[in-house]
């Protein structure tokens, strides 16, 4: 979380809407532990990371969708098989569970 604070502060000062994605759980092998955070603003700018770079692109898509809906947040799972919600995967074979929500608090 610490590493995303400066960018988030800057975006908030610019009145940008922001989504926060945090790793809440890992099954098997995963590159980042629970608590790893990434933030996305309404323009699609990104800071932080929730994996070794494997799923960040898909997280941006999901985060923007949440920002542009009335969602108060949802759990999103990224795994290694193609029948997961997204066709992106962790090369290490683990499953990462994220909670993505608007940072309106």
């Amino acid at each position: 979380m610490r590493e995303v604070l400066d960018d988030i502060d800057r975006w908030r000062a610019q009145n940008k809407r922001i989504a926060l994605a945090r790793v809440i759980d890992i099954d098997g092998s995963g590159p980042r532990d629970p608590g790893a955070a990434m933030a996305v603003n309404e323009d699609g700018e990104v800071c932080g990371s929730v994996s070794g770079g494997c799923v960040e692109g898909a997280v941006v898509t999901e985060a923007l969708e949440i920002l542009n809906s009335s969602s108060s947040g949802r759990i999103v799972k990224f795994g290694y098989s193609d029948d997961e919600a997204f066709a992106v995967g962790l090369t290490c074979g683990g499953v990462v569970h994220l909670f993505i929500q608007p940072l309106n608090w």
Partner: peptide
């Protein structure tokens, strides 16, 4: 307001714990 307080505590190296409802009634509340 909660985020600002959280950022303040993290930067000040003060022990803090953030709770977030991720599933169920009031999802997203902290």
């Amino acid at each position: 307001m909660i985020y600002a307080a959280l950022a303040d505590r993290i930067r000040g190296n003060k022990p803090t714990v953030l709770l977030t409802v991720i599933d169920g009634p009031n999802t997203g509340s902290t």
